[in-house]
Design a binder for these strands. Structure first.
Lengths: 327, 327
DNA sequence: CTGAAAGCGCTAACAA
DNA sequence: TTGTTAGCGCTTTCAG
């Protein structure tokens, strides 16, 4: 910047102004500076700028995994809207290991982000404390926490669990199992399971029938296949299964096909997530769809406006029951 | 940091040392400092540290899209190995728009990353120039560019295209079409198509049969379905189609099923990518699998070691022809 | 083993 | 419209 200033015969501050508030610099001067910048191939140092202005133009995002295509779309939405305002995305993932979350947030915070996005939904008290004191705007995603840290963009996983269960009951299913939803760290899955359980109780259909996900080494699809096998073994008179995610449901569907079980007449199968592959691939999965991309976009917008408005935003984007062929 | 120093009754520099080289501080002093840090909830400012030490501990990554699950696994591998060494990932995506690449790289560079990872494979001369002069270690991924900017971790898309075509020919297919591979900005797809074309010519099987991807609004799966329809319309005696990606192939497969076409006896179908869903979902797609995650891990390792070794690394991780049921 | 001074590249606040 | 001065919070270098 110093070199640019000399070459353009101006002070450093004028170079800075040309870059950030060009309208405040005289046309001629500005052109001289721009030429100098071009000639020297100057790329401003955003870090130094951040340090000086205490605005980093960085948003940190913590995701539990990238493997899930729905989180991916959230990140895409987030990234796109941030870029529009020249913000950048610092990404950290915890691989669904809650014990990494603390450290990850600390690392993100050390970059002094102007905002933080969390897709994990349960935090240690220390973490809450840290976040609160850090004074960084926080958006929690993909959930409607009871006790939010800052802003929220999500939907109720519990209601989603209720919705699909009620749907199945309305369609005369009586013996309904729930596969998955127990993985530690996957609070959302657990909430869907709770919604299911509540409805079952209210309807007087007896105890919930849970099949835990098997060993974490298996892919979701494989887990679904295995899950439905175990379920049918335990409860041969099952007439519906709710899978905690679409990949799980896909696995279940395939296993059912292999076993010669007719879906949905013998057994209804549903998922969660709105995995884009599931419809055109001919699986025609009945599922609950979540607005992944919009969640990301919304989070970006909230963060970008959080300087002006000081009010905490709680946005429920809801979900949609997509009725297709499997239930 | 100042406050911590005062509370621990040491100089700021000692605090810094406790954080970065604890072994160089006396046990007692260190403990006093650590206590102060904890009491005050001090989170060091990585930006300031970066400015001062001119090592940002940040790696920038430019991806063409996040939607593709294989890039996702690359990012996961990258992120994991970076985190192990306390590096962070700054993510930018271009949405497959090459014209955004220049600006995106410039933005990444302004954060003074210690390394840069590019999944796009074709760059403007200005960009090359910029990258070269910036002196930041660069790794190009998912390809084997003829004229690499820095390090490379990838495989030959052209050879992959050749391999699958040769495989089909060896299995007595003679009328083979190639679907997709023309999307502007998707150089890799084009290279696969070239490999296909070369083999066809060498084998004396006549001109290549290309079906372009339809409008970009369609999802890949839908594009595949539509592509196979167009192909069969134009060349009713087709006996094999190579789809430029697995999602495309899935769409093709489903459309074939709808049309009552028997795969592979009437028509062979193949993909590229090793989409994890395609096997357990019972689609059993014959495809070429790329080591997405290992590419990311390797890229991280190269970057992390690039201070020591000054040699340019070109790593060909290859690909694997996965023979399953569709060809 | 510990500390003081200087400065990384930029911007805020004020001044001209 | 442009420039000057004083930091931002840390690390480097050199000295104790």
């Amino acid at each position: 910047m110093h070199d640019v200033a000399i070459r353009a015969k101006v002070g450093k501050i004028t170079v800075s102004r040309v870059l950030r508030t060009p309208e405040k610099v005289a046309e001629k001067t500005r052109q001289r500076v721009l030429d100098a910048i071009r000639d020297l191939g100057y790329v401003p140092d955003g870090m130094a700028g951040a340090l000086s202005s205490s605005r980093s133009k960085i948003v940190g995002a913590l995701v539990s995994t990238l493997a899930d295509s729905v989180f991916t779309s959230t990140i895409e939405g987030l990234s796109r809207n941030l870029r529009r305002s020249n913000y950048e995305l610092l990404l950290a993932n915890t691989d669904y290991a809650p014990e990494l979350e603390d450290a990850a947030v600390r690392t993100l915070l050390s970059r002094r982000p102007d905002g933080l996005v969390l897709t994990s939904s349960q935090h240690t008290p220390q973490l809450r404390e840290l976040l609160l004191r850090s004074n960084v705007p926080v958006v929690e995603l993909w959930d409607l926490p009871e006790n939010p840290i800052g802003h929220v963009v999500g939907f109720s996983n519990r209601l989603a669990g209720r919705a699909i269960t009620e749907y199945l009951i309305a369609r005369s299913h009586r013996k309904i199992a729930f596969i998955g939803g127990n993985r530690s760290g996957d609070v959302r899955g657990q909430q869907r399971a709770e919604g299911y359980q509540d409805v079952l109780l209210e309807a007087g259909l007896g105890a919930a029938l849970f099949i835990d996900s098997p060993s974490p080494e298996l892919s979701d699809v494989e887990a679904g296949a295995q899950g439905i096998s175990s379920a049918l073994e335990r409860w041969p008179d099952l007439d519906a299964v709710i899978c905690v995610s679409d990949p799980l449901a896909m696995g279940a569907l395939c296993e059912a096909a292999r076993k010669g079980i007719n879906v949905p007449s013998d057994l209804a199968v549903t998922g969660f997530g709105g995995l884009e592959l599931s419809q055109p691939a001919g699986l025609n999965l009945t599922t609950i769809e979540f607005p992944g991309k919009r969640i990301g976009e919304m989070a970006a917008d909230i963060l970008l406006n959080s300087e002006d408005s000081d009010t905490r935003q709680i946005v429920d984007l809801g979900f949609e029951l997509i009725r297709r062929a499997t239930a």
